[in-house]
Structure formats: C-alpha cells, structure tokens
C-alpha cells in the first residue's frame, strides 16, 4: 500500500531491522527474566542433596538431609497439621465463598456496594494487619487459641479453630472472586431454558447452574487450598502454643540456623505446590472444551 519512494523504502527497511533486533532483544530479556525467577529455586533444590552441612559449598551428592527430615517428628506433625488445616479451611471457605459469589453476582439489593467491599477487603489487607486483628479478637472475645482436643475414630486430633477461622476469613474472598468470574462468563440462556421447561429454582440450580459452575468452584477451592498451605503470617499469630504448620516450622528453623534440611523440606513443599498448579491447569484446560454441559434431566 505504501508509495514507493527511495526515502520510504529506506525507512521501511530500517523499521524492519529495528523490529528484528527488537524481537531478538525481547526474547533474550524473556530468557534472562525467567532465569532470574528460577535460578534461586534450582540452587535451593540442588543444595538439598548436598552431603555436608553447607548450603553454599557443594561437597557431594547425598540423600542424608531427606532422611533427617523424615526422622524429625516435629516436621512430620507440622506436615499433618498443615494438611488438616488446609483441608478443613478450604472446605468451609469453598461453600461460603460460593454462596457469597451467587448472592453478589446474581442479585442486586440495597447496600450491595458495602457488602461487595467487605468481601474484597480481606484480599487487599496486608497479612500482618489481618494477623494482629485476629490475634486481638481471639484474645479480647475470650475465644482463645488453644486447639480443641478431639478424638475421632480413635485418632487424636488437635483442632486449631482460631487458625481455621483466620484462614477461612481470607479464603472466602478468594473463592468468591474466582467463582464470580466464572458466573459472569456463564451463558444464562441454559438456565432460562430450564426454567421455561418448568424446572423450579432448586432444580435449575442443582442440574444446570451448579454443574456449569463446577470448574470455577474447583478452581477457587484449589486456590484456597494453596493459600492455606502457604500461609505463614496469619497462622503464626493466630495459633496457640504447640500448634505448628510447615511454614511456621520452617520459619523457626531458619531463625535457628541454616542447614540443607530446610532445603530438603522446601523441595518437598515445592513439589506439592507444583502438583497443585498442574492440577489447576489441567482443570482449566479440561473445563475449556467442556463448555457444553450434559444435563441429566
């Protein structure tokens, strides 16, 4: 389309050269940026296999620190605590967050802006502020922090209700945001069709809305689970004496002194996070081509 004058041809060639160098430079930058993101993690994993106590001088390959980690009862208890806490708080937050998402996305009512903002606040508030808020609340209200001792089918459990409440409090909002995003994208004609076919509100919800919403709910649950497993600050401030999760244990270990045992534990936690990310990606891609929902009327 361009008018062919020597000057313009020159200009265009110059632009093309610039574009090529630009994209080459951009790719180089991309590689460097990812190297920056990954190198510390790779080095961390590498030194979990170090033979000696050092995390900066490589002396030889060994699985010694993994063995020490598995033998450490405190670490193992913290691990079960972490998993228990994440499962319980995720279950509660997923149900409550989904209810909130439905209420906020599907209806308009007086005072909605205020309720809306309340559900966003826990996401943006810094975790240190939320942690001390909850600390004061549990203290002042007399609810306290001491985990309940429960015996379930002969298994003795310590239920850290204060930490569970703290985790649910921030996870409700995250679940609600993810589920709302899904609701906003959802095609409402299917629900209208169901109603036209004399399905009542509950049937429509159970047979149409819920199945279509499932990827969003699972995505929200997975996010909540990861956030709960990862949380350090809120757990640290809301757990009573004697209740430790893995991040709290890791923080304590770092404060005492650096050994490859921390690297080994980190590698284990990294593997868990990685598998959770993979699951979430698989969920998302599968739900992508499953837009059409089978309705089991």
């Amino acid at each position: 389309m361009s008018i062919e004058t020597p000057e313009l041809a020159y200009h265009e060639r110059w632009e093309r050269i610039k574009a090529r160098f630009g994209s080459w430079g951009l790719t180089t930058y991309g590689i460097l940026a990812f190297a920056f993101l990954y190198l510390p993690i790779v080095i961390l994993i590498l030194f979990s296999f170090n033979e000696s106590r050092s995390v900066s001088k490589w002396t030889g390959f060994s699985l010694r620190w993994y063995g020490e980690m598995l033998k450490d009862d405190k670490i193992m208890i913290s691990m079960w605590n972490s998993i228990f806490l994440a499962v319980v708080s995720t279950a509660i937050a997923t149900v409550l967050g989904t209810l909130a998402a439905l209420g906020l996305e599907r209806y308009s009512f007086r005072g909605k802006t205020a309720v809306d903002s309340m559900f966003y606040l826990p996401v943006i508030i810094p975790d240190i502020a939320m942690a001390i808020m909850l600390l004061l609340f549990f203290n002042m209200s007399g609810i306290g922090f001491t985990p309940w001792k429960v015996s379930l089918f002969g298994v003795k459990l310590a239920v850290p209700y204060s930490v569970i409440i703290g985790h649910v409090a921030f996870n409700i909002s995250f679940v609600a945001i993810v589920v709302r995003a899904r609701l906003a994208q959802m095609d409402r004609t299917l629900e209208e069709a169901a109603q036209d076919l004399y399905a009542n509100t509950w049937q429509t919800f159970r047979r149409v809305t819920l199945p279509m919403l499932m990827p969003g709910i699972l995505g929200g649950a997975l996010l909540a689970f990861t956030l709960s497993l990862d949380d350090f600050v809120i757990t640290f401030f809301t757990s009573g004496a004697g209740f430790n999760t893995l991040p709290v244990r890791v923080f304590g270990m770092i404060k005492k002194g650096v050994t490859p045992k921390i690297n080994a534990l980190s590698t284990l936690m990294l593997a868990v996070s990685l598998s959770l990310v993979v699951i979430s990606i698989l969920l998302r891609t599968r739900s992508g081509d499953e837009e059409s929902v089978q309705m089991g009327f």
Binding site: I41, I43, L44, F232, I254, S266, M269, L274, L276
Partner: peptide, 17 residues
C-alpha cells in the same frame, strides 16, 4: 510456578545466596 512456591521458601532461597 515460582508464584505458587511458598513465599517463605523463596525468601529463604535468597538467604542462602
């Protein structure tokens, strides 16, 4: 992946460096 890696662990990685 790095984002979902525990923040504490990522900070610890820099401590060792």
């Amino acid at each position: 992946i790095p984002f979902w890696t525990n923040f504490l662990i990522r900070t610890y990685a820099w401590l060792t460096l």
